[in-house]
Amino acid sequence: MDMVSIKDRGLKRPKTERSLKAGDRRFAYLILIPAMTAFMVMVFYPFVDAMSMSFFQFTIYDMEPIFIGFDNFVTVLTDPYVLASWVTTAVFVVGTTLLTMTFGLAWALLMYQDFHGRAVFRTMTLLPWILPSTVSAFVWAWMLNGKYGVVNAMLLSAGIVDENIQFLSNDVGAMVAIILTRTWISIPLFMSFFLAGLQGMDFQQIEAARLDGAGNLTIVRRLILPHLKPVFLVTGALGMIGNLQQFDIIYALTGGGPIRATTVLSIEVFKQAFENWDLGMASTIGVLWVFTLMPLVVFYLRSLFKED
């Protein structure tokens, strides 16, 4: 092969000698700018701004925010309604997360089994998740309809109840409705979390246990559940974060009612901010909300970064 001299290749000597990786670092910062800008403007600034508003009185009657120190916090922490909505939130979050994880795990175990038609099931599983929230809310509102709802029809014909339950107009029924609907929507995602966890399972271990005479339930209890424990913790945190943030389904199904029976923090903040236009109070409840979320997010982030 003929050798070609340096000049033919159009290579230029570097002009200045900076550190070898300086260019890389500059590039890294450069490509971070768009996302960082978007983040700062749309997420971080609004967050700090909203948080600081909790020290101000700022309602539709005030031209300018008036600094009032911790007064909002005193009001909020002594307001039985706010505390009640915190409890409502807790009921919704715990109920939904528990149900979702139970069904999500069971469904993942079923979908892990190789049976005829599994592919169809797996594909269809995504369905509840990709429906717009309003649509999901409609579907369940119609199913749970107090007069013509199919759930009532089924309960009646099975002899479980004697007369129709007015799900959406009694306190417990409304809570059941939003938990059921939210669970229904979340199962697909949790199934895929657990399925991913199962895929990392050592199959030979199961085979070995089976040779040792372990039955299906023993294998689930002694091998699979321990293996999934880390996945459990992380998805649990993730599920609770998501459910704490949940607004759409609840608003579309019950609007926070009847009266205040399903008024969770997200609904409370929305109503304070965009129905009463009391931004100071909305922000203050928001602070309470942030502090509820914080330990979960910290836990989640820590487990994400543990391996790095």
Binding site: L11, K12, R13, P14, E17, R18, L20
Partner: peptide, 8 residues
């Protein structure tokens, strides 16, 4: 070449 890019 201590601080030269690989391509150079």
């Amino acid at each position: 070449v201590t601080n030269w890019q690989p391509s150079k």
